[in-house]
Design a protein around this nucleic acid. Structure first.
Lengths: 156, 156
DNA sequence: GCTAGATAGTTGCGAATGTAACCATCGAAA
DNA sequence: TTTCGATGGTTACATTCGCAACTATCTAGC
C-alpha cells in the first residue's frame, strides 16, 4: 500500500530556478546597491538604456519582462537622481523616449566591469563543459518558456 | 575612440536567470493559486512538508532558502486553513515540529501530479541533449552559488 | 544557581510590488 | 468632427516583503 505520491523538490524546476536566481541576484544586487543605492528595477532600466541608448518605457518592460508600474517607478527615481531624461515623442505625445544623462552613463560605465567581473567569477567555478551546459540550458528554457506567455507579467 | 564599455544583458546570468525563474514560477503559481489560494511561500512550505513529513520552521527556511519571516507567516496561514499543525518540542520548547494535517496531505497529494505534469510539459519542449544540459547547469550553478553565501537571506 | 550570549520564532514598520482604475493621446470609423 | 476602442504611462490601494527589534528559551562559563 503506502501509495504516497511524492514530488521531489530538489528536482523540481520552478523551485530550483527560483532558489538559484534569487541567490545570484541577491549577491549581485549588493554590488550596485552599495555603490549607487540602486534598486533592482532601477539597475535593470539603467542597464537596458546603457546597452540601447534610447528606448521607451514600454520597450524596456517588454525587453526585460518587467511590469510597467515597476518601469515607471524606476524611471521616476532614475530621473530624480539626474541619471535619466525623458523626451516626449513629436509625433505621438503619449510616448517618451528615455535616455541616460552624462551622469547616468558614468554610473553605467563604472558598473559594466563590475558586472562582467561578477559573471566571470561565477563562471570560473565551472569547467568548460558546465559552462556550455549553462548556456545551452538557459537558451533552451528561455525559448520554451519566455515567448509562450505574454511577456508583460499581467498576472502574478 | 568610442571606448564604449558594454554589458550584454542578453548574456548576463543574473538577468537571464531572474527573467526565466519569474516566468516559470508565475506560470506554475497559477496552478496552486487557482486551486487552493496558496501563495508562493505557502506552497513551498506545504511541498516541503509533503516530502519531509515533519520539520521545524528553521529547517524549512534553510532547505528552501526562504527568509524566516516568510516561513513564519506561511505557517500561520497554513495552520489557519487547517492544513498544518505545530507540536512544541519536549526537550527544547523554542522549537516547533511542523506537520501537515490529513487535509493538508490531501492538498499535497492532489498537487503532486499537477506539479509533475507541469515539469513534464516544460521538459517536453526540449530534446534529450537540452534536458541533460538543464540538469547539469542547475547542478553546477547551485553548487557554485548556493553553499557559498549563507543560506538564510539575511541581506536583501 | 546566575549571567551572557546564542537560537527559534514572531511582530512592527517602512519599502517594494501587482492590480485595477485612471488620464491623456492617438487612429480609425461613422 | 465626433465618437470609440486601443495604447503609453501614472496613480491609488491593498498586499507582500525584509530588516530590525523583540520575546522566550536554551546553553555555557563562572
Amino acid at each position: 500500500m503506502a501509495d504516497e505520491p511524492i514530488l521531489s523538490l530538489e528536482d523540481f524546476l520552478p523551485y530550483r530556478l527560483n532558489r538559484l536566481a534569487e541567490a545570484v541576484s541577491r549577491d549581485f544586487s549588493k554590488l550596485y546597491r552599495e555603490r549607487y543605492g540602486l534598486t533592482r528595477p532601477e539597475w535593470r532600466v539603467l542597464a537596458t538604456l546603457g546597452e540601447f541608448p534610447t528606448m521607451t518605457a514600454t520597450e524596456i518592460g517588454t525587453h526585460s519582462s518587467m511590469h510597467k508600474t515597476k518601469v515607471s517607478r524606476a524611471v521616476v527615481e532614475l530621473e530624480r537622481h539626474g541619471w535619466l531624461t525623458r523626451k516626449t515623442d513629436d509625433a505621438d505625445r503619449r510616448v517618451e523616449h528615455l535616455a541616460l544623462t552624462k551622469a547616468g552613463r558614468g554610473v553605467y560605465r563604472e558598473m559594466v566591469p563590475v558586472a562582467n567581473a561578477f559573471q566571470a567569477r561565477l563562471l570560473a567555478k565551472l569547467d568548460e563543459k558546465q559552462r556550455d551546459a549553462v548556456m545551452m540550458a538557459l537558451g533552451a528554457l528561455e525559448f520554451a518558456e519566455l515567448p509562450l506567455q505574454g511577456n508583460m507579467p499581467a498576472e502574478q
